[in-house]
């Protein structure tokens, strides 16, 4: 799974200056919609929020991976936000989130595409060196390079 190819340039938000989880999620959804991979903003937003209600996607280490599968998504895509101020995400370890990857997958996507993306992301985020470098990236180009190299 080459996740750098899913990254949507318009949806790389560095920094994202938002006050809370809700506005952060909406900003990332809007960015994916602006890039064209999300065609029905409200439908996709509902899928993301419904997922968060079953349990936070804050996985610890200061990162969150909100994700949703929806008919409002035309093609699989990835957004990234580095928050200007840490955001409370109801994370399992109780710590606020410094950055988030958002995954969008079409409703009719074959098999478990979003699971494959989650696995690929988690295999990078588990490495402390990757997390440190991720928090240093300044733009989409640097992020793409980082996702490709590690």
């Amino acid at each position: 799974m080459q996740i750098s190819s899913l990254l949507q340039e318009q949806a790389v938000l560095i920094p994202l200056n938002t006050a809370d989880k809700q506005t952060s999620i909406e900003a990332m959804v809007d960015a994916l919609a602006a890039g064209g991979s999300v065609t029905d903003r409200d439908a996709y937003l509902q899928a993301i929020l419904a997922r968060e209600q079953t349990g936070s996607t804050g996985i610890g280490f200061g990162f969150a991976i909100p994700h949703g599968k929806s008919a409002g998504v035309s093609r699989a895509a990835l957004a990234f936000a580095k928050f200007a101020r840490p955001v409370d995400w109801d994370s399992l370890d109780g710590n606020p989130v410094q950055a988030a990857f958002m995954i969008a997958v079409p409703a009719e996507a074959a098999g478990n595409e979003h699971l494959q993306i989650l696995i690929a992301l988690s295999r990078k985020l588990i490495h402390e060196e990757f997390r440190e470098q991720l928090l240093q990236v300044q733009n989409a180009e640097q992020l793409t390079d980082l996702l490709e190299t590690i």
Binding site: I59, G60, F61, L115, L118, I119, S122, R123, L125, I126
Partner: peptide, 12 residues
């Protein structure tokens, strides 16, 4: 006891 650790296993 690590969510991220468990996810890296890629269990299907």
């Amino acid at each position: 006891k690590s969510i991220l650790g468990l996810m890296t296993l890629g269990l299907a």
